[in-house]
């Protein structure tokens, strides 16, 4: 039984699984951009064929990267209630034009063929996206993301874009998310240990919100205190904003990375323009 206090489990960050797979060995820049390409493809593809191509592509990712599908299935199940509500809203409130074929009636709202199609598209699209994003966080570590961004954004330094500061913000955020989850867990437990009502009784979003809201202020205060200590720790290890820094990672972009990127971009284009190709 998983505990009701395990907030850490619900954050996607920090779920990286180190492996020596072909996917894991690709340059982080190539991985980041490849995921971005597929992501764009899934978001903008107009029909099921495109989504199907995307889904197969993601499954191939999983196989090649040797990562488990189970956490993603769990993620889908967790999101399902919200997705269903969204889909229902789409069916009921989706815009209608005269040529639409009305196929039924719920609570006085006309249900059209097109709105049902849109709702199904929405469900499938989000499902594929969840699987994709989970795959993403399992195959690229936060430090690889920052390293990739470091080199990808480096050209922007020419126009005085504060790349270092931005990356530090990204890095500290990534570091803080699991800490905040852990702190939330501690405060929730402290409340429960003193009689606070943390018993989960079925699906009750309002009760859930009532329990989580009082955590927010202490969490912010706690995080600020932590940030203060961390700022001191950073300063005492010589971090000065605005001073040139180097990176622990020297990235090497090989022809395999290029091929990988080219291939995923191709698939993405295929998804987006699937209608035209048909």
């Amino acid at each position: 039984m998983s505990s009701r206090f395990e907030f850490l489990g619900s954050t996607a960050i920090g779920q990286y699984i180190p492996r020596q797979s072909w996917i894991h060995r690709r340059d982080p820049r190539a991985r980041l951009l490849a995921y971005l390409a597929i992501f764009i493809g899934v978001v903008f593809t107009p029909d099921f064929i495109g989504l199907g191509v995307g889904f197969v592509c993601v499954l191939i990712f999983y196989l090649m990267a040797q990562i488990p599908l189970k956490p993603s299935v769990k993620g889908i199940l967790r999101a399902l209630p919200f997705l269903l509500i969204l889909a229902l809203l789409q069916i009921l409130l989706g815009g209608r034009i005269d040529t639409d074929l009305v196929i039924g009636n719920i609570l006085g709202f006309g249900v059209t063929q097109r709105s049902v199609f849109n709702a199904l598209m929405l469900l499938t699209r989000f499902t594929v996206l969840i699987v994709l994003i989970n795959g993403f966080v399992m195959t690229i570590s936060t430090s690889q993301i920052t390293a990739a961004l470091f080199y990808l954004l480096k050209p922007a330094e020419v126009v005085r874009f504060p790349v270092n500061d931005l990356l530090m913000v990204v890095q500290i955020t990534m570091r803080f998310l699991p800490l905040i989850a852990q702190t939330a867990e501690k405060i929730a437990k402290a409340q429960a240990a003193r009689g606070g009502d943390w018993d989960q009784r079925g699906f009750n979003p309002i009760g859930q919100a009532k329990r989580v809201l009082p955590l927010i202020v202490p969490l912010i205060i706690n995080s600020l205190k932590r940030a203060e200590t961390m700022a001191l720790a950073m300063e005492s290890r010589g971090f000065n904003a605005g001073v040139k820094r180097s990176s622990y990672y020297a990235l090497q972009f090989s022809w395999k990375d290029g091929a990988f990127l080219l291939l995923t971009t191709g698939v993405s284009a295929l998804m987006i323009f699937s209608k035209i190709i048909n």
């Binding site: 920090g14 890095q171 971090f239 000065n240």
Partner: peptide, 15 residues
């Protein structure tokens, strides 16, 4: 500061 052990040790050197 960093999200992996090696990277944290590297932080002060990057600076």
């Amino acid at each position: 500061v960093a999200s992996t052990v090696e990277e944290d040790v590297a932080f002060g050197l990057e600076n």
